[in-house]
């Protein structure tokens, strides 16, 4: 089976999850012939990938979101060359943490990084720019695109994988499913469909108990986390009920609330909307809801931490931007 891997705008964590297969990786390589893995396999260059016949690669993984024109171009090339294209990891699937930058303008991002930054020595308020001249030498830099996008905003994706990054045991299951041809219908997430709660030893349902309403919202540093009780029950805004649990509930097992990196449980598409309806329905009364907003003043960064560019909100931001551009042109 011919395999290609592209790291677009990502952090490399998804790649490391594959490296962490360790000895299992050696077995997997018996089935997979790596024809492209940028930028790790140096002898296969971008132009070599471009020269491959269309649909000549059986399986392609893209990790990371689309942040610049190169990402966009290569994602399109991957789509042309690969029979099956997988958006691997939450950035590729829905935009990931760096997607929160969509809540801020490019000007704000730059100003904070280069002018307001407390350690910056920048009396002339210099900003990195697409073209600059130093001692008579002309230098260029690529421009940042306005928005981070999930892969599916650019090309059709056959399968989605959540996780930041997917745990290596999940990766092993994915590889097994692909190699054995045991795949769900196209357009699906590769998940067992269970929630984090289904795997969480704290889940009251697994102990034959029912879940109470939340009487008080706590931030993660507040109080002492009980080692056995459900985190939601204790007031911590755990997103386990609405998050894919292929990780095996790793965070809640060490007493930290689930932040939703696994992505929405199908058929839900907009993670944040589902999260807000699920969590608020557990609040005992309006007072608790108010408290939640006080404790998490930018609520979008709680419920859309991993999923903003792939949400209705993310789409809308993009549309609004386009409208603004059109207005400017007119």
């Amino acid at each position: 089976m011919k395999f290609a891997y592209l790291l677009a705008g990502g952090c490399g964590g998804c790649d490391m999850a594959i490296v962490d297969l360790s000895e299992k990786l050696v077995d997997a390589l018996e089935h997979l012939e790596i024809v492209f893995w940028a930028p790790t396999v140096a002898d296969v260059k971008y132009k070599d990938l471009e020269a491959m016949p269309d649909k000549s690669i059986d399986l392609g993984f893209v990790s990371g979101m689309v942040r610049n024109k190169e990402n966009e171009h290569l994602v399109k090339v991957m789509r042309e060359k690969c029979k099956i294209l997988v958006a691997y990891g939450i950035c590729a699937a829905l935009g990931g943490i760096p997607g929160m930058a969509n809540l801020h303008s490019k000007e704000e991002l730059f100003e904070n990084a280069y002018i307001k930054c407390p350690s910056a020595d920048n009396p002339d308020k210099v900003l990195p720019s697409p073209e600059s001249e130093v001692n008579g030498y002309k230098l260029t830099l690529p421009e940042l695109l306005d928005f981070a996008k999930p892969v599916s905003a650019i090309v059709e994706v056959d399968y989605f994988v959540g996780g930041c990054p997917p745990h290596h045991d999940h990766v092993a299951k994915i590889v097994e499913a692909i190699v054995s041809g045991n795949l769900p219908p196209k357009g699906s997430w590769i998940t067992d469909g269970k929630s984090v709660c289904d795997y969480c030893p704290r889940n009251p349902a697994l102990k034959g108990k029912t879940r109470d309403f939340i009487k008080e919202v706590k931030r993660m540093h507040e109080g002492k986390v009980d080692e056995e009780e459900c985190l939601l029950q204790q007031g911590y805004l755990c997103l386990g009920p609405v998050t894919q649990g292929d990780c095996g509930a790793l965070c809640t097992k060490v007493g930290i609330r689930c932040a939703g990196c696994g992505g929405p449980i199908p058929p839900t598409t907009d993670f944040g909307l589902r999260a807000i309806s699920a969590i608020t329905s557990l609040f005992e009364n309006e007072k608790v809801a108010k408290q939640a907003l006080e404790k998490y003043p930018v609520f979008a960064k709680l419920i859309y931490r991993y999923c903003l560019p792939g949400s209705k909100l993310g789409e809308k931001a993009d549309v609004l931007k386009k409208r603004a551009v059109v207005k400017e042109v007119l």
Binding site: R67, P98, H104, E108, N112, P128, L141, P142, L144
Partner: peptide, 12 residues
């Protein structure tokens, strides 16, 4: 040649 902006979006 690339930039993400973490110092901004962790605000709030």
């Amino acid at each position: 040649v690339e930039f993400r902006g973490y110092e901004t979006f962790v605000r709030g």
